[in-house]
Design a protein around this nucleic acid. Sequence first.
DNA 1: GAATATATTTGTACAAATTACACTATTTAA
DNA 2: TTAAATAGTGTAATTTGTACAAATATATTC
Lengths: 226, 226
Amino acid sequence: MFKETKTHEVTTDVVIFTIKDGKLKVLLVKRAHEPFKGKWAIPGGFIRISETIDAAALRILKEKTNVQNIYLEQLYTFGDPLRHPTARVITCAYFALIRSDDIVLSFEDNSEITEVQWHPVYDLPPLAFDHKEIIEYSLKRVRERLEFCPIAFQLLPEKFTLTELQKTYELILDKKLDKRNFRKKFLALSILKELDECTKSGSKRPARLYSFNEITLNSKRGHFFS
Amino acid sequence: MFKETKTHEVTTDVVIFTIKDGKLKVLLVKRAHEPFKGKWAIPGGFIRISETIDAAALRILKEKTNVQNIYLEQLYTFGDPLRHPTARVITCAYFALIRSDDIVLSFEDNSEITEVQWHPVYDLPPLAFDHKEIIEYSLKRVRERLEFCPIAFQLLPEKFTLTELQKTYELILDKKLDKRNFRKKFLALSILKELDECTKSGSKRPARLYSFNEITLNSKRGHFFS
DNA sequence: GAATATATTTGTACAAATTACACTATTTAA
DNA sequence: TTAAATAGTGTAATTTGTACAAATATATTC
């Protein structure tokens, strides 16, 4: 298909998850050029020649969201020669979990992109390349992680209620959980720090606020939720 | 470090596990050239321009072992610019599990390699590049897989005893398991087919032979062993 | 062929984790 | 003060995991 003298291009694409408006969403960019001009895609870009792959993924993330210090994990490397219509592009995909509050989406005026937007992960527009497959694979991985690691905290504000925490799990797992069992299990893990504060009159009865206790986490193993 | 005009090279390296002489081993090749001339390394090679990454990994595997149709899974992509002393080489690592009986190790006389050999994974020689890290990461992944998937069967002959199955788990997890609990758990999973045969006079009491029942597997979920 | 050595096979009691399930408490708004 | 909405709580049944010891079948040896 390609001449053997042609070289691979290597990119990284980052599936960025957040919870916004009560929905699990991913960040998509609208492509300014062919191929797939006008189609939505996961943000991505070429890996620079002296840059680690992790650094490239972080750079992509920062360009679009201005956030750093967030949960970022290498997902899988997609390299079907047919995934790009005109070149051999191998992409090392990552996923990230971020809090979307106080984030201003942006893109440099490099005319690669005409729009940046959050899209509900369960209701995606048609996507460029194999990006639908990459998002589906990410979601699967996030669910796997959720069972073992407290990554849900990456999506929540510093102080949160148990109901908010449960909602986060329900959105990612896409199923209802039992309130009493959820609370019992989390409190038994003792990775939550009960604060002296409550939500100020959101509506109805105020809820206790908790924060994530990183200290006890390291000694914890085993399942979170399935 | 590198000029931006320089291009990435993309390889795949395959960590091939087997059980041999009662030990968990990995396949290593001795490098014929610099860098790391004379050092042991994981078998690997460049991904061809019109080849999927999976196909490249399979090709590497077949070149060295002549086996096909085995368990092969993408592990992780290692891309530190410093991992190769003279070039920017991104490698997409895989791991494979194979039965080592009736396998003849081989290498084409391309003078890239001077030897191919199985090495105990818990007693490795000094390795080229970041290959030690890659093997450690593989082992971690195999252990994770072992908890959920019946991949141990990939290392066993078609017919095996429960003791052999347990030994396989113990070698990979590097710890002793309780015999009665191991059997109870596996038999409860009903992914084993009890055969009418026994081991013919290995020594002492003959053991019942079992085979792996693929049919019931698909309906199974959850933990295997931890 | 009897005794011995070696590996196979089997069950039970206890602890821990998971699941199912319904009512009371506190606040705001009418 | 009443109604509506969300927060918060406990127990019993089931399942799963863990710890642990004796009997059985064959080969070898005396």
